[in-house]
């Protein structure tokens, strides 16, 4: 049952060189820089997003994800979800408004997977970038690179997937859209959503907690995914896999790496999910087809290269 968590709001990613990262995320992926803060963090957004930022880059000596945040309906929901998290047994950290520029107070907790998540209700609403909210044009003409439309989801690798699913379902109101189940009945991957999207966040079982597999950005068409592949070659950017289709979610996709080794995805299409839908199940023994629908073979790099 939905509990007022609307959508992914932002992700803070560690990069080893901020200028190289900006060239990648702005000129190649097509995000737009909207702010910087006194810590040196840089704030980015994709053009269809209505809030001030969705990606925060922080320079550090190792790559990975600091945290991912979800926007909730309003402050009353934030307050009640914070209480629910604590009642459930989570340690909750309150982060004051303004710690991230133009963002309201955040409630941070650690999932059993080891990852840090945040909830917040307020962020400066700047509207879609480059188009008006009245009689809007189809798209802004000065977008760069892959012209990413929105930050869509993350896939994270971590520990205790069953407890992580229970937390997201029972406390935060997410719904299980797809799952990978091994022959013993264990869930080894979960794709969960708080919307109609096939996933707002996904987890894969891993002995090490708090690992980052990828941040994903939405494109409009398959042609845009092919064009993204062209741009990877033109810029000599390390490609991981694709262009191809996933079995899981059926999205059309390509994966590549940022200059610090964090994996990115750009994708289009895919299935939808309503809360009354039964979860789609993939068998772990058919994981090759589940992940790479065309090759139907597993790729060790996709499974084991993490930051």
């Amino acid at each position: 049952m939905q509990k007022g968590v609307m959508r992914p709001g932002h992700v803070q990613i560690r990069v080893m060189n901020i200028e190289e990262a900006l060239d990648h995320y702005c000129n190649l992926v097509g995000l737009i820089e909207t702010d910087r803060d006194e810590q040196g963090r840089v704030y980015l957004k994709a053009w269809t997003e209505v809030d001030r930022f969705s990606v925060v880059l922080r320079e550090a000596d190792e790559p990975g994800m600091d945290f991912m945040a979800f926007k909730v309906l309003n402050d009353a929901v934030l307050e009640s979800l914070s209480a629910d998290l604590q009642a459930y047994g989570c340690d909750v950290e309150n982060i004051a408004a303004g710690e991230l520029n133009n963002c309201g107070r955040r409630v941070r907790f650690q999932a059993p997977s080891g990852h840090y998540f945040e909830l917040y209700a307020e962020k400066e609403r700047t509207g879609k970038w480059g188009v008006s909210n009245v009689n809007p044009e189809a798209w802004p003409r000065d977008l760069k690179g892959m012209k990413a439309e929105r930050f869509d989801h993350c896939l994270l690798y971590g520990t205790d997937i069953p407890a992580t699913l229970k937390l997201f379902e029972d406390v935060l109101g997410f719904s299980l859209a797809e799952q990978v189940v091994d022959p013993d009945g264990n869930r080894v991957a979960i794709f969960i959503t708080t919307s109609m999207k096939a996933h707002d966040i996904a987890f894969i079982d891993c002995p090490e907690p708090n690992k980052f597999h990828h941040a994903s950005f939405c494109l409009d068409t398959w042609d845009s995914v092919l064009r993204a592949a062209d741009l990877l070659t033109m810029t000599d950017t390390p490609k991981d896999i694709g262009p191809t289709r996933h079995g899981l979610t059926h999205g059309q996709t390509i994966y590549f790496f940022d200059p610090s080794g964090n994996r990115n995805e750009v994708f289009c299409g895919g299935d939808y999910h309503y809360p009354d839908h039964e979860p789609v199940t993939w068998k772990a023994e058919d994981l090759g087809k589940a992940i790479f629908y065309h090759d139907r073979e597993l790729n060790e790099r996709f499974l084991e290269v993490l930051t």
Partner: peptide
């Protein structure tokens, strides 16, 4: 071959001889 960007550590080697320059690598790796 992993991320090819100094982040994942999959291509870690020990240099036995020779000289080289290095770009920044993940301190975790």
């Amino acid at each position: 071959v992993g991320c090819r960007s100094g982040g994942c550590g999959v291509c870690k080697v020990r240099v036995l001889s020779g000289t080289f320059t290095a770009k920044v690598m993940s301190r975790k790796q």
